[in-house]
């Protein structure tokens, strides 16, 4: 068995090197598929980051009535935290609200003067609530609008921003779905193109397959070397894909940072380069091996 395996690998490497023109052409096409695949990974990361940043900006805040004690507010915070839809609840006391307000307007002398004249802190304590899913804000809001809480809650911001939040949630949903669909379509197109290239490469060897059968070679002995060649195509194209992407990501990364300041594409790429190579390898080797397996099967009859 080990001898047969060794012979299959030997013939695979021999076929790959002796048909070097066909090998190069096939690797080039597979490389295009790998680049499409890798771009989809990177666009996915950028898109996900953009969506999560927008999502992070959405929250609803609850303003309490003046008479409500801190204990009551913290009780509501605790009960909100038990809801499965709620990701995070932040309690902002009156003092904290004032500090933040001043921080937001450090050089506005009119505001500073107005606060001085009022003397007392005019701001109210509030809760800022973030949901896991933007679609869940409506159910959180209906929990807060419950009659039993009307005595302590003055306003819920969702009631004022409902339209914008719902629209943003829809846009993010559509963005995710469109991204997924685009990924699937492009990955399928890249796979089909690669499959056809391998089909043509093996088609040119169909007479040889016939000869091998006449000599008494088993299906495994005939198919094996082609599968090895398919895997070699995959390894080379995955490696070339990563190498070619390095300068591209280096060049594009600053522009991505302009659009999404929190995103460091170059940092992400260099930090995950082995994982990306792994995904490329899996994708390309799978296409190479499966295509070879399927195509040779067609010529193994008779």
């Amino acid at each position: 068995m080990l001898t047969t395996f060794y012979r299959i690998v030997k013939y695979g490497i021999q076929n790959f090197s002796r048909n070097y023109l066909v090998s190069i052409a096939t690797i080039l096409v597979l490389l295009l598929a790998v680049i499409v695949f890798e771009s989809l990974i990177l666009f996915g990361v950028v898109g996900q980051k953009a969506i999560s940043l927008v999502q992070d900006k959405i929250d609803i805040s609850v303003d309490f009535r003046e008479t409500v004690s801190e204990d009551e507010m913290l009780n509501l915070k605790s009960s909100l935290e038990t809801l499965t839809e709620v990701k995070e609840v932040e309690y902002v006391s009156r003092d904290e609200a004032l500090v933040r307000f001043k921080d937001r307007h450090p050089s506005d002398s009119d505001i500073a003067k107005a606060l001085e004249e009022i003397g007392d802190n005019p701001l109210r304590a509030s809760l800022n609530i973030k949901a896991f899913n933007p679609n869940d804000y409506s159910s959180i809001a209906s929990y807060l609008n419950n009659e039993s809480l009307s005595g302590i809650i003055e306003t819920v911001s969702y009631n004022q921003n409902q339209l914008v939040i719902d629209r943003l949630a829809k846009i993010m949903d559509v963005g995710r779905q469109a991204g997924f669909l685009l990924t699937v379509i492009l990955a399928v197109v890249a796979s089909i193109v690669s499959f056809n290239t391998i089909l043509l490469a093996i088609y040119s060897s169909k007479d040889e397959i016939g000869i091998m059968r006449l000599v008494g070679a088993s299906n495994m002995f005939i198919r094996g070397p082609y599968i090895v060649v398919g895997a070699i195509y995959g390894v080379f194209s995955a490696l070339a894909g990563v190498i070619l992407t390095i300068p591209f990501v280096y060049f594009v990364s600053p522009y991505v940072s302009i659009l999404i300041p929190e995103m460091n594409l170059w940092g992400y790429f260099t930090g995950n380069i082995f994982a990306i190579f792994g995904y490329n390898l899996l994708f390309a080797v799978l296409i190479g091996v499966v295509s070879s397996f399927v195509v040779v099967r067609r010529y193994l009859r008779g």
């Binding site: 021999q14 076929n15 040889e208 006449l214 008494g216």
Partner: peptide
């Protein structure tokens, strides 16, 4: 069947007018 043919052919030596040799070997 197709899978059994290789074993049969290992008992035969076949020679053709067009040689049918593996060209890249």
């Amino acid at each position: 069947n197709d899978k059994e043919l290789p074993e049969l052919r290992r008992h035969m030596g076949i020679i053709f007018q067009d040689f049918r040799l593996l060209p890249k070997k």
